[in-house]
Amino acid sequence: MSKFKHFVGIDVSKEYFDAVVILDGTKEKSIHSQFANDYKGIKSLCKWLKEEGSTYENTLVCLEHTGMYGKLIINYLTSFKFDIWVEMSLKIIRSIGLQRGKNDKIDAERIAYYAMKNQEEAQIYEPPRKVIEQLKKLISLREHLVTTRAMLLRNSKELKGFEPELSKIYAKFCKSTVKGLEADLKNIEKELDNIIKSDENLSNVYEKSTSVTGVGKVTTLYLICYTNEFKMYETPRQLACYCGVVPFEYTSGKSIKGRSRVHYMANKKLKKQLHMCAISSIRAKGDFKDYYDRKVAEGKNKMLVINNVRNKLIHRICACIRNNKNYELRLAS
């Protein structure tokens, strides 16, 4: 039996948020209010909930994943021990079915109803440690700088083939910018290394992950940040599904027999990083190269085999972390 008696749905926007409380698990007994999306507004929310008999002990708070707009609410309510469920908006929309009309109040009510209906499946939010938040910010900044540098270098290279004179002018004015970006990237790499070394648990997870052939620093940090140090998923298959590397069957009766394929709803960044790891592990001498060559020789599609390697990499990483051991390559006797 669920411990929750009241259910709060919060629809977040930049300047304010709407909150709807379903009291005593009865949809007809719902109340609504709107608050400013700042500390003062969140304090008013807590006061309002308390007046209605809704406390951290008997209330489930649910809101959509809205990035930075919902962060203040999540951090504040978590500090007061509220159980918070941060859910994908698409999951909420699809679970409710066909709906007509939309505004902030209705959206908050639908979120509250979703929480009440699916309370047994609620995934209570566990806030990441401060060091993980630091890693996230640095990795995000690194990604922006890498993209900017690549764009500048690519444009210069393209111009060289068509307008050499203009290419020289372009390269001249971009030279100092590119150098500055490369210097900043080096500093970020050093800071990332310092953060990893300064935290024992982080250093341990990092060591176990990078011991797997083909898995590098950036991929490991992405996995650590997106999975909250591998706490968000109970099994390697769940993580593999999140990364979009698990194929699912598409058949129905006798008429529909589609090929198995991965789902489009996946973390594209992790999928891209794992793809690069798979290519690296296939190029290196070892069991993955042997596996790839054998399957391709059997007539298997190359991308299918690469996806299988991505899946295997996740299982190996999770096994190393679960057993607290570095990966050991077993050579054929």
Results as ranks from 00 to 15, higher is better:
I321S: 07
N155A: 10
E328F: 10
N228E: 01
M88P: 02
D107G: 04
Q99R: 15
L329M: 10
K117H: 07
I321P: 03
H275L: 10
E182C: 02
I314R: 00
H315E: 12
E165T: 09
M116P: 07
K268R: 15
E229V: 02
E229L: 05
E200Y: 10
Y327R: 02
G214A: 08
S13Q: 04
A112K: 00
L166S: 10
V86T: 07
A19L: 06
S33W: 11
C318M: 14
N324R: 15
K254N: 14
M116W: 13
I124M: 13
G253K: 08
Q34F: 03
P128I: 00
I84V: 02
E87G: 00
K175R: 15
G180R: 08
I317C: 08
E328S: 12
F7I: 00
A284G: 10
R110H: 13
S156I: 13
A183M: 08
A266V: 02
F82M: 01
K3L: 15
L98T: 11
A297C: 03
A171D: 13
K186D: 12
G299W: 06
T66N: 02
T148D: 13
V309L: 02
A19E: 04
F162H: 13
N118R: 08
F4L: 05
F7Q: 03
R154T: 04
E52W: 10
S260Y: 10
C320E: 06
R110N: 14
S260Q: 11
M232Y: 09
I74V: 13
Y39L: 13
I256D: 09
T210A: 03
L181A: 01
G258Y: 12
E249H: 11
Y69A: 04
V61P: 01
L202W: 03
E165N: 13
N267M: 05
G216W: 01
G299E: 06
M232A: 14
Y264W: 09
I10H: 05
A240W: 09
E234I: 04
L145N: 10
C225T: 09
D199T: 02
S198G: 07
T251M: 07
L192V: 03
V245N: 00
E87M: 02
T66D: 08
E87V: 06
Y114S: 00
A278K: 09
N311D: 10
S209E: 03
Y222V: 12
I124Q: 13
E15N: 15
S281K: 04
K157V: 03
L49F: 11
I196S: 09
S260E: 11
I132M: 04
K179V: 08
L331N: 12
I306W: 01
V61R: 01
C241D: 08
F17E: 07
G180F: 04
N326Q: 12
A108W: 03
F82N: 01
V246I: 14
V218F: 06
P128K: 14
T235Y: 09
C46H: 12
Y250N: 14
K160Q: 15
L202D: 05
L98D: 06
D107Q: 09
Q134E: 14
K27Q: 10
P127Y: 00
R259Q: 11
E207C: 12
D107A: 04
E165K: 14
L185T: 03
F173S: 08
N194I: 02
K179Y: 09
H65N: 14
C241K: 15
I224P: 04
V212L: 01
V262S: 06
